[in-house]
Design a binder for these strands. Sequence first.
DNA 1: CGGTTGCGTAAGCCTATGCTTACCGTAAGC
DNA 2: GCTTACGGTAAGCATAGGCTTACGCAACCG
Lengths: 114, 114
Amino acid sequence: MAYAQPAHKSSNHHDGWSALADPTRRAIFELIAERPRPVGDVADHLPVSRPAVSQHLKVLKDAGLVVDRPIGNRRIYRLNPDGVEAMRAYLDRFWNQALAAFKVAAEQRAQEVE
Amino acid sequence: MAYAQPAHKSSNHHDGWSALADPTRRAIFELIAERPRPVGDVADHLPVSRPAVSQHLKVLKDAGLVVDRPIGNRRIYRLNPDGVEAMRAYLDRFWNQALAAFKVAAEQRAQEVE
DNA sequence: CGGTTGCGTAAGCCTATGCTTACCGTAAGC
DNA sequence: GCTTACGGTAAGCATAGGCTTACGCAACCG
């Protein structure tokens, strides 16, 4: 084999992690967290074009981090607590493991000193 | 202006979010969470080459998510609780905001029904 | 109703990045 | 001291992905 990508089943790369990996997208995420906003309002606060914001919002939505609701002419985006909670739970789990491992390591060091 | 990237100050893109965005890197993260491991051991559990693992570990280390310690011939990598905690704290904050906004939205809907 | 406003989508460019193979130190083992 | 094991780094390639402009459509406004 000369070359290999990690064998993605199709093209689904769109979890919360890659969604928040991009700085612009994280800025959008934070703006929306501040208060629910229509697309144009978000774009006004950022140095990128409005279509770029639309594209980012699609990614955030696919990742389950935001939801939108049409209000007349506009779409209001707001955070989706469930999506945020899912990532929080993941980190929580590994944080506990990290702490446990850390404690073990500390004890081993203590024994080395004896 | 014909084209513009988001104006990164230099090339520092390496926060915990982009570190965990890659599926292979997340797998490495989880293997190390399970228990501290040398590089080769991690590579044995993944469908990518050892140098690829080395590169991923460098990213995770730069992001502050893992630390390493040389033991004789090998380097043992383990999770860094501080790095995980930082991301956890970030999500926590927005989770609270999301919940608050959600509550407000629910109340507004309730009023609409009246 | 014609004009305006708000937003999603398409096409296309350029950079970032994940992978591979090749190579080079350094520590262990005989 | 050689040989082997471990792992970091370099070079190079192919795809992913973030941005822009152009466009289309629906809702609102006079």
